[in-house]
């Protein structure tokens, strides 16, 4: 069952730290996701974002960022291998067994993201649409998170 619920996604991830005034993408409300030339930009902190793109877009993303920041204090770091990505279908109820965030549909809506804990492991959640929750987790914790989801689903 867990394998049907969870689908791995191979994506480009680039970490961005900079003053919000010099960003090449639209700055969004805290804990929301904007799009930038077809990429997702996840708000992680007041000066921290995660740019997520399709495979093969890494060089373009890095170049566009470096061009935009040229000469100004910033950090652009390839974190494509630093987190594994799963898409979880219809999983908000399940996540609420081991995640303290308010994931009720009236508060947690598509287009939102958050850094939190699930089953004691650090994760980033991104609600892609009503049914799909994208989970970013450090690869070393990925087996743990899969197992926690399996157990949670089993216990209900």
């Amino acid at each position: 069952m867990t394998d049907e619920l969870l689908v791995a996604a191979e994506l480009v991830q680039v970490g961005v730290r900079a003053d919000p005034s010099i960003l090449p993408f639209e700055t969004a409300e805290p804990n929301t996701v904007t799009t930038w030339n077809g990429r997702d930009v996840l708000w992680l902190g007041p000066d921290e974002w995660l740019v997520v793109g399709e495979q093969g877009t890494e060089d373009a993303i890095r170049r566009e960022l470096e061009d935009a920041f040229a000469g100004r204090h910033h950090s652009v770091v390839d974190v494509g291998a630093n987190r594994t990505v799963f898409d979880l279908t219809d999983g908000l109820d399940l996540l609420s067994n081991s995640c303290g965030l308010d994931l009720h549909s009236s508060r947690w809506r598509p287009g939102m993201c958050a850094q939190t804990l699930f089953a004691q492991a650090q994760v980033i959640l991104h609600q892609r649409d009503v049914r799909t929750t994208r989970i970013f987790v450090r690869p070393s914790f990925a087996d743990h998170v899969r197992e926690a989801i399996r157990v949670t689903e089993f216990l209900g």
Partner: peptide
């Protein structure tokens, strides 16, 4: 101080 730190433990 103008410094940004990023954990890349598992990048490598």
């Amino acid at each position: 101080l103008r410094v940004y730190c990023t954990s890349v433990t598992e990048q490598w």
